[in-house]
């Protein structure tokens, strides 16, 4: 019983990080129908910003978090302006390849500046509660709570505010939105800022939970978050959250019952099975093609 609760907590922790990153993929996809493959590397940048903040500036948790979020958000907006915006009319794959290029650039630029894996000093005091066999740390609780708060905030923004309404309008029909007086470019920038900011937050939390960080850490985590977004139905914000938690749960479950080398295998196999039965993800709707 304790074991199950313990694993549930672990799954929630991993899942909330996946979900936060998946949100960035899904938001950008929803608005530009473009997969931002550099997103996983922006997540990595978030972790490194946290490292810089904690090691060189001795910041505490909240300022470091703000730096991670704002720094990656700014980077996301800049990347969109310089690399993606010129390609909005180009074939979709060109944008995808550009995103792959930006990702590789971020990885290697970080590596060039900083050739060693780094260790993020603990920013959250090492408090652990123990109930019988069950133990959970303050960090774990913080990660889960903070992620949930961020997700609720986002959900509110998208559903209840003018910016969110504009985002949904653009994702519904990009050509009509400007006719309705929606400043498309600004809304796209806002989408990138929010999406990558969430990724940055995830990077920081991931770095605190698994403190050894390196420039390539974003690749695998990024792909997995991307899978979460697809499982939930890409372009669907609630879907991305659900997908993230599902993937987190699956990974923890597999690791609990199989040798750890099978973890990726089972995760991806499950993904395939899901896609066969629900080709558009859990919450995604098939896009009826007009003939």
């Amino acid at each position: 019983m304790f074991y199950i609760i313990q694993q549930t907590l672990n799954a929630l922790q991993l899942g909330s990080i996946y979900a936060l990153i998946a949100l960035g993929y899904t938001m950008v996809y929803g608005i530009l129908t473009m997969i931002n493959f550099a997103h996983g590397d922006l997540f990595m940048v978030g972790a490194f910003l946290c490292f810089v903040a904690a090691t060189f500036f001795h910041m505490s948790f909240i300022p470091a978090l703000l730096l991670s979020i704002l720094g990656t958000a700014l980077l996301g907006v800049v990347i969109e302006k310089f690399a993606y915006k010129p390609l909005r009319q180009a074939p979709r794959v060109s944008a995808i390849i550009t995103a792959l290029g930006v990702g590789i650039f971020l990885e290697n630029f970080t590596l060039a500046l900083n050739p060693y894996p780094r260790f993020i000093p603990p920013l959250v005091c090492n408090l652990t509660w123990t109930f019988g066999e069950l133990s959970f740390s303050l960090l774990q609780v913080m990660i889960i709570t903070l992620s949930v708060i961020l997700m609720l905030l986002l959900d509110f923004t998208v559903r209840r505010t003018m910016v969110g309404m504009a985002m949904r309008a653009i994702s519904w029909d990009k050509s009509v939105a400007p006719l309705m007086g929606i400043p498309v470019n600004r809304i796209i920038s806002a989408t990138f800022a929010i999406g990558t900011g969430l990724g940055g937050a995830a990077g920081m939390m991931y770095g605190l939970a698994y403190p050894v960080i390196d420039p390539y850490m974003g690749i695998m985590v990024g792909w997995k978050a991307f899978i979460s977004a697809v499982v939930g139905g890409i372009g669907n914000i609630r879907g991305a959250m659900i997908g993230g938690f599902i993937l987190g749960a699956v990974e923890i479950l597999v690791a609990a019952f199989f040798p750890s080398t099978y973890r990726d295998f089972v995760a991806f196999a499950l993904l395939l099975v899901l896609l066969i039965f629900r080709p558009h993800g859990i919450l995604g709707k098939p896009h009826a093609q007009k003939v």
Binding site: Y29, I35, W223, F226, I227, V230, I234, P259, T261, Y262, D264, F265, F268, A269, L271, L272, L275, I276, P279, H280
Partner: peptide, 27 residues
């Protein structure tokens, strides 16, 4: 899978396939 899925979803299928191959060989 390419009969029914296209585009991004098929991309995921191939991605997953690549990962599965690597995983299987590792095991």
């Amino acid at each position: 899978p390419s009969f029914k899925t296209r585009g991004d979803y098929l991309a995921i299928v191939t991605l997953a396939f690549g990962m599965i191959v690597k995983s299987i060989i590792e095991n």
